[in-house]
Design a protein around this nucleic acid. Structure first.
Length: 293
DNA sequence: GACCCGTGGAG
DNA sequence: TCTCCAAGGGT
């Protein structure tokens, strides 16, 4: 089967991407590898619309990895704002530091080297290699995974991390030429984000509807997914409230103020301790809590 | 492999 | 109000 014959029709997808792909700042040439990398960190589990303003401000302030590395991890966490999962900001700062120290300040293009950076896993490494450097490598996120499952295999997927099997499957469908392959991955991802969404796929606008195995099979039901993690009352919520206090302040926050974040002192103290362990907060000699300096 | 880690908009 | 979720990674 050639690249233009399989269900993920390359030409149709590239036309779709050209016509309907979003003009996102990290897709512009001026974003460069660093811009791609920053965007991939921010987009982990976070919607595009919320990333956009933070990304723009971030790139203005820290246009190169060395610029970020020169400032404190606390500055990165504060600039991260309310994107969520602030450990990503910590890891991005650590990755920028590693790039500055070990890679002459340039984002590496080699996948094993990318994987060695903090916060860069199987998805992010390949996304950077493909989108920033035009590498021919399978980029499989939850969107691509869903499209692969539906269009090619005819069954819906549960929302779980991509597997090596997913990557092998997409790789077998990649166009031969590397830049075209990278654009193909971006197009499949965009299709999953805009058309073949998890909730209500818009098959009427889908360029692949004529050859979609899932549609042809009459949309067999989505398998039950594992229960989503609860949030209300968990440490994640409490940590978030404490971090919001630290971001709002520009100096140490007194314990009496931290106490207002959550009523249960046991859980509150546990969360403060875990934030310190994670490197998201530090205590000063007076017992105040602040972002790392 | 199971579990942990934030956030705010949509239905 | 409440559930579900949105370009994962680390342990």
């Amino acid at each position: 089967m050639t690249a233009t014959e399989h269900r993920l029709d390359v030409d149709r997808l590239l036309v779709f991407f050209g016509d309907h792909g979003r003009d996102l700042p990290w897709r512009r040439p001026e974003a460069g590898p660093w811009g791609v990398m920053v965007s991939e960190f921010m987009l982990q589990q976070t919607p595009v619309v919320r990333v956009l303003p933070v990304f723009e401000a971030w790139m203005r302030r820290w246009p190169r990895p060395a610029d970020l590395a020169a400032d404190s991890s606390g500055d990165a966490v504060r600039a991260w704002g309310r994107l969520g999962y602030p450990r990503r900001a910590l890891r991005l700062h650590a990755a920028a530091t590693a790039i500055t120290n070990d890679h002459d300040g340039a984002v590496p293009s080699d996948i094993p080297e990318l994987l060695s950076l903090p916060g860069v896993g199987e998805y992010t490494a390949r996304a950077i290699a493909a989108f920033a450097f035009g590498a021919r490598t399978p980029v499989v996120d939850t969107n691509v995974r869903r499209v692969l499952s539906r269009v090619v295999r005819g069954v819906d997927s549960v929302r779980e991390p991509a597997t090596p099997a997913d990557r092998r499957e997409l790789e077998s469908l990649l166009p031969t030429e590397s830049v075209r392959a990278a654009r193909f991955s971006a197009a499949v991802m965009e299709l999953g984000a805009l058309i073949c969404s998890a909730g209500d796929p818009d098959c009427d606008r889908c360029p692949l509807s004529g050859r979609c195995a899932w549609r042809a099979a009459g949309y067999p039901p989505t398998p039950a997914r594992r229960a989503v993690q609860a949030f209300a009352g968990t440490d994640r919520q409490v940590r978030g409230k404490i971090m919001a206090l630290l971001r709002a302040a520009h100096g140490p926050v007194a314990g009496s103020v931290i106490d207002t974040a959550w009523p249960d002192p046991i859980q509150r103290d546990r969360c403060v301790a875990s934030l310190i362990t994670d490197g998201l907060a530090v205590t000063d000699r007076d017992g105040g809590l602040s972002l790392p300096g």
